[in-house]
Design a binder for these strands. Structure first.
Length: 986
DNA sequence: GAGCACTGC
């Protein structure tokens, strides 16, 4: 037994499949065997060429029953002539043979090709035609976004002229996969879940990870897992191919990572069919006012340059709306009937200045060629002599001429109508859709966007990009988890991605509002997401795959150790991981802490597709019929931006009034949904429950949402998530018999109290306590709360319904730091619940002697009253009934109650009083000492433990009597849903 | 007394 544990800890693998000997063995040999198929070509920059045939292995040839260079099977595809023609224009088609040879001969291949290369649509078709999906095996492609998975499956089905039954998709809430499916597009999270059901992914012959350069957390984990799965599949003689597709050449994290791929996988580069984009840097970089600079640049472009849409990149909603307002004011356009006419005739557009000016031929600068470093240093100086303000790299178009200093007066010019549209993720979909329609006749389209336009949404017909060079990003404090949003410079890769948005339909221009020197100081790539955020959700998923030593997992880029430790600590506190034994040295303890195995509760939690804190809430909600409510609350907490945002600057007086009215309405509804008295104590979570309940009752219509300031999209997502969570709970607990009830009744007062306890159990590390009057030394702590991990005061967010209530103890969903630290999603809790529900966060004192310890017939354990203090802050918590602490005294009490007959119905003549058992060792009589020693040696300090000892060694019974043992009372099992939850309500 | 970019199960 010990040997085995030892072996496990020592082995370098981390994807332990210990139930399957074969797999385990194979994992350990991964490094030596599985990746040695073929010597690997290290051509990162240049395409492979076909006469550089890669060496192949007999094993693989046998596996596919064909020589390596030529597929033995060819599955015909009946494409339409138009599709054929369009396909042939894609550069990737010329590389088909090269790509397929590399795939045939290597288990892992990387394909680099920028947007427009056609890799996402074509590579699956290559594989299909080469027979990779011909016999009992399918081709899986992961996308980081749902829309992409759906639209790509549609497009490929159309190109191949094949039914959706064969080319299908699967995303979180829907899919059209059938038994006939051969090509399956899915989101990366879907595949990760599938690995939990079938670690070897046996139904797939090929997995393609698309958009790997985006480095989404699931993509990263998938690549780590697949780096082990692929060789394992070789071991079981069912080889699988892994293809990693990236839009950038930054693949060193995959290629130069020996832990991930011991042999360097070949990387093939394919060209993209993009139009050239000329990049213009500003001579000077504005200190702060990039918004004003954006405005001026758009004005110049609009006044002087030929037709073509403008896309502006800014950092947030407020900026987007404010620029929209300024631009609309400067270039108003009157809506008329022609607006409805969809066909916009380029020739009829009037561009005052640009018509007078000679349009210069656009310079041919390939976006690729400068993407690493700006090539303009020389030009910059040359341009500087002629132009103080701006260096137009490689371009003769001078925006400075004809500038009439518009920014001062911002006088409006209605002869040059500009059709200005905002675009950001939280914008209602129908408003987002506007940017894809042609602008009204005689106007120019100008989209003012956040980062959504960089990856998620592609607007055609953009010719000019204005890039402020900034992004707004979320930052997490690794220790406290407090998050904040900061605006920083973007990365070179992302600036290039933005520039590329100007070359989708014709050659374009990108205006960067910063100098090339500033650009070259940008980091090359943004750090992968997994290094920047808490990882407890990922860690629990990995633990559920029996990956215990997460620290050894072959992450393409590992999360910081602090983040791993924080995740492990939280999961232990939630009971999802088995706590390491407290014996041993500190160092060993530290190491053990990073390799805790998952607990049964953890397995249940991992099956719920929500954050571990919320999964814990679900796992505790069976009692008192709380599940439907807990599911609803958890769904609402998971879906972001529940309420519509009305804080933006209004365009008109009329809008100002409208926004004001809506804001007032939301505030009013919040108060109504929060309820009164005991209901209100559930706080913001009660608002969520009330809002979802009311919305569903009304049929979840856009109208209801609009009228009540709810985001329709969010409400639909909550509805779907409730459905998914209901199914998930039913499957771990079939007798729950849950269903989603659109006419769900409000919870009772008692249920609300239980819900508060459930919420506390999940948010144990998010408890805060109001500063008491006597502690108030500094004004800055007025109305403030203290938390265990933060030195600074935190406050209830003004939007919270508890903002004015200021309950003594609260839990919060998250803390966001802006001007101060604000708690959001706040519920009030009672301090006496804390020691009962959150023992890991409490330091308990000695058991009270009054009331005395007692035997609990339900659990078969010794119970007692213990006072405690909350961790790190030392808040005194009321004494509560808990299990008697481990140790000799527990044995003594157990012996005492045993002798008293508390465990069973037998009565014996005892020579001593059971009370003797509580005396110190020295005062014990020999016969009682024997009993105590026996109990200790058998670790029998509870009924279950004693029964186990008797089962193992029936002789033990003699120690107590000669008679029948105690009869076990009730089920001893402590199933996760059965556990005696909760403090008495009220 | 406020101001959050973007995504996946």
């Amino acid at each position: 037994m010990e040997l085995e544990t030892e072996k496990k800890t020592e082995s370098s693998d981390s994807s332990g499949e210990d139930e399957e000997e074969e797999h385990k063995e194979a994992i350990e040999k991964t490094a030596t065997d599985s990746f040695n198929f073929g010597k690997v070509e290290e051509c990162i920059k240049k395409p492979l060429n076909s006469d550089q045939a890669l060496p192949s292995t007999p094993a693989l040839q046998k596996a596919f029953n064909k020589p390596s260079s030529k597929p033995a099977v060819f599955i015909p595809v009946d494409r339409s002539p138009e599709i054929q023609e369009a396909r042939l224009k894609l550069p990737i088609l010329a590389e088909e043979q090269v790509i397929m040879e590399a795939i045939n001969e290597n288990p892992v291949v990387i394909i680099c090709g920028e947007t427009g290369s056609g890799k996402t649509t074509q590579v699956p078709q290559f594989l299909y035609e080469a027979g990779y999906a011909s016999s009992n095996g399918i081709i899986g492609i992961t996308e980081p976004r749902r829309v992409a998975a759906v639209s790509m499956s549609h497009r490929v089905a159309k190109e191949m002229n094949i039914s959706h039954r064969v080319v299908s998709y699967q995303i979180r809430y829907e899919g059209n996969v059938t038994d006939e499916t051969k090509i399956k597009f899915m989101t990366d999270g879907v595949l990760l879940k599938e690995i939990q059901k079938d670690f070897l992914l046996l139904k797939y012959k090929v997995i393609i990870i698309d958009e790997a350069h985006e480095r989404s957390v699931y993509t990263d984990i998938l690549i780590g897992l697949l780096s082990r799965i692929v060789p394992l599949r070789g071991k079981v003689r069912k080889p699988m191919k892994l293809i990693i597709m990236s839009a950038t050449l930054r693949v060193e994290d995959f290629t130069d990572n020996k832990k991930l791929f011991p042999a360097v996988p070949p990387a093939i580069q394919v060209d993209a069919r993009q139009f050239p984009v000329t990049v213009h840097f500003n001579k000077r970089t504005p200190a702060d006012d990039y918004n004003g600079e954006c405005f001026r640049k758009v004005c110049k472009i609009h006044r002087m340059l030929p037709a073509g849409g403008i896309l502006v990149f800014l950092t947030g909603q407020a900026e987007v709306h404010s620029l929209c307002r300024r631009l609309r004011k400067a270039f108003p356009f009157r809506k008329n009937k022609t607006e409805e006419k969809e066909e916009s005739v380029e020739e009829t557009r009037k561009f005052k200045k640009s018509k007078q000016r000679k349009t210069m031929p656009l310079p041919k600068i390939d976006l690729n060629s400068y993407s690493v470093l700006p090539v303009d240093e020389g030009d910059e100086d040359r341009e500087a002599e002629m132009d103080e303000d701006e260096d137009a790299v490689g371009s003769d178009i001078d925006l400075e001429l004809g500038d009439d200093g518009l920014e001062e007066g911002e006088k409006s010019d209605s002869s040059l109508p500009l059709y200005v549209l905002p675009l950001y993720s939280l914008l209602a979909p129908e408003k987002q859709a506007k940017v894809f329609r042609p602008p009204p006749l005689g106007t120019r389209l100008c989209v003012v966007a956040t980062n959504v336009a960089e990856t998620s949404l592609t607007i055609p017909s953009i010719k000019y990009v204005v890039d402020c060079g900034k992004v707004k990003k979320r930052f997490y404090d690794k220790v406290t988890g407090v998050s904040s949003f900061r605006v920083t410079w973007t990365s070179q890769a992302s600036a290039n991605q933005r520039a590329g948005r100007a070359g989708r339909t014709e050659p374009g221009h990108c205006y960067r509002l910063y100098s090339s020197a500033v650009f070259s100081d940008f980091e090359k790539f943004s750090p992968p997401e997994i290094t920047r955020r808490p990882v407890e959700d990922l860690i629990i998923q990995m633990k559920a795959l029996n990956i215990e030593k997460v620290i050894n997992f072959p992450f393409p880029t590992p999360p910081p150790t602090e983040a791993l430790a924080a995740a492990e600590e939280l999961l232990i506190a939630l009971g999802a991981l088995k706590e390491p034994l407290k014996t041993g040295r500190l160092k060993e303890l530290q190491r053990a802490k990073l390799s805790c195995p998952i607990s049964p509760l953890g397995m249940t939690m991992a099956s719920f597709p929500v954050a571990p804190r919320y999964a814990k809430m679900l796992a505790l909600s069976k009692q008192h019929d709380c599940l439907p409510y807990a599911i609803t609350i958890v769904s609402a907490m998971t879906v972001r931006e529940f309420f519509e945002e009305f804080e933006r600057p209004a365009v008109s007086e009329e809008e100002t009034e409208k926004l004001k009215g809506k804001k007032a309405r939301v505030t009013q509804m919040r108060r109504i949904w929060a309820g009164q008295g005991p209901f209100q104590k559930l706080g913001d979570l009660m608002v969520m429950l009330g809002a979802v309940g009311a919305c569903e009752y009304a049929g979840c219509t856009p109208k209801f949402c609009e009228a009540n300031g709810l985001r329709y999209k969010a409400m639909v997502e909550i509805r779907r998530l409730r459905g998914q969570l209901t199914t998930a709970v039913n499957s771990v607990c079939p007798d729950a018999g849950l269903f989603v009830d659109p006419k769900m009744k409000p919870p009772t007062e008692t249920q609300v109290t239980y819900l508060r306890q459930i919420v506390l159990a999940g948010l144990g590390d998010h408890v805060a306590r109001r500063i008491q009057a006597e502690e108030l030394l500094d004004e800055k702590w007025k109305y403030a709360y203290k938390t265990p991990l933060l030195d600074d005061p935190v406050f209830i967010h003004p939007n919270s319904v508890l903002f004015k209530q200021l309950p003594e103890f609260v839990v919060y969903q998250e803390i966001v730091e802006t001007t101060q630290m604000y708690m959001k999603g706040v519920s009030a809790i009672e301090s006496e619940w804390i020691p009962v529900l959150l023992p890991p966060y409490c330091h308990f004192g000695k058991p009270l002697e009054n009331p005395p310890p007692f035997y609990c017939p339900e659990t078969g354990r010794i119970r007692c009253q213990r006072p405690s203090v909350f961790y790190r802050v030392g808040w005194q918590l009321p004494a509560v009934e808990v299990d008697y602490p481990e140790g000799i005294d527990r044995y003594k009490y157990f012996a005492k109650f045993l002798l008293e007959g508390k465990l069973g119905s037998y009565k014996r003549c005892l020579l001593s009083s059971p009370l003797t058992m509580l005396k110190t060792w020295s005062k014990l009589q020999p016969r009682t000492e024997i009993l105590l020693k026996a109990l200790v040696s058998e670790s029998a300090d509870s009924r279950d433990a004693l029964l186990a000892a008797w089962k193992k060694n029936p002789k033990c019974k003699c120690l107590v009597s000669g008679g029948a043992g105690p009869t076990p009372a009730g089920p001893g099992s402590a199933g996760w849903l059965a556990r005696g939850l909760m403090v008495k309500a009220g």
